[in-house]
């Protein structure tokens, strides 16, 4: 073997080694990137789970308070009213009016209690399902606010998964609250439609059409939860929301949830 051959072979070996090392480095980096991606995915999943747990905790707490108020305090106030009735029968002329006033006052408290309790947790949701619960929500709002809420449904009887139903209910509630606050609307129409695959709820108002913008802007502000709340709730249940300008005036918000039926 002469000197040139040795150099040539040496160079080739070195070159191959070089390629080998470079390949190794690239492969390793790829792995690192993949690992990081995986970690990120896991992180997102974990975040979602945490959010879900937090919301569930919040909901069960609300439910407990709502039921305690409604069932315990409500029953006691009803008894109070029955007792007042008793007193009224035995009372003298002058006292009768006072007792009557007190009775009416008790009724007012009970009415307020109903409103608070139902806002905290919709009992109709568990017993009668999402569509009826939304209808009840509209009735309740119509009694207490100056705005007129109309509820329309295609009358379908598809069941809705419990968790999804509650989240959709909350989203509609949040939308209505924001419309009341910002949209200067007179009428709201809620439409409930479903096919076996897709649940679609639209919330339509005849206000100033600035709802989407205000919600979007509120995302930047600290402490304001409007749209964030809506989006994270829909994110958890795999739904989405779109805003569009109403043709005449106001805003149309459309909520869609796929695969909403309970899994048996």
């Amino acid at each position: 073997m002469n000197f040139v051959e040795i150099i040539l072979i040496g160079t080739i070996v070195m070159f191959m080694l070089g390629i080998f090392v470079v390949t190794l480095v690239i492969l390793q980096q790829k792995q690192v990137i993949q690992y990081k991606l995986k970690l990120k995915d896991k992180d997102l999943l974990l975040q979602k789970e945490m959010l879900r747990a937090a919301l569930q905790g919040q909901e069960s707490e609300r439910k407990r308070i709502s039921e305690d108020l409604h069932d315990e305090v409500g029953a006691q106030l009803s008894v109070l009213k029955l007792n007042l009735n008793h007193l009224q029968q035995q009372a003298q002329d002058a006292q009768v009016d006072r007792i009557k006033e007190t009775k009416e006052f008790t009724d007012t408290i009970i009415q307020q209690l109903r409103f608070i309790s139902q806002s905290l947790h919709p009992q109709a949701l568990e017993n009668l399902g999402l569509s009826h619960a939304l209808d009840s929500f509209c009735n309740l709002m119509n009694k207490n606010k100056t705005i007129a809420i109309h509820y329309k449904t295609d009358g379908n009887k598809y069941g809705v998964d419990k968790e999804k139903a509650l989240n959709v209910y909350r989203v509609v509630q949040e939308l209505i609250n924001n419309i009341l606050k910002h949209a200067e609307a007179q009428n709201i129409t809620i439409t409930y439609q479903a096919s076996p695959q897709l649940l679609k709820i639209t919330v339509e108002d005849d206000g100033n059409g600035r709802l989407a913008g205000i919600l979007e802007a509120s995302k930047q502000k600290q402490g304001s939860l409007g749209l964030k709340n809506i989006e994270s709730r829909l994110n958890i249940i795999g739904g989405n929301i779109n805003f569009a300008k109403n043709t005449t005036k106001g805003t149309i918000a459309e909520i869609q949830v796929a695969n909403f039926q309970p899994t048996i």
Binding site: A124, L128, D135, S136
Partner: peptide, 11 residues
Amino acid sequence: TMYEDDNFILH
């Protein structure tokens, strides 16, 4: 009941 709700009444 305490529940004042048309949907409950109907049901």
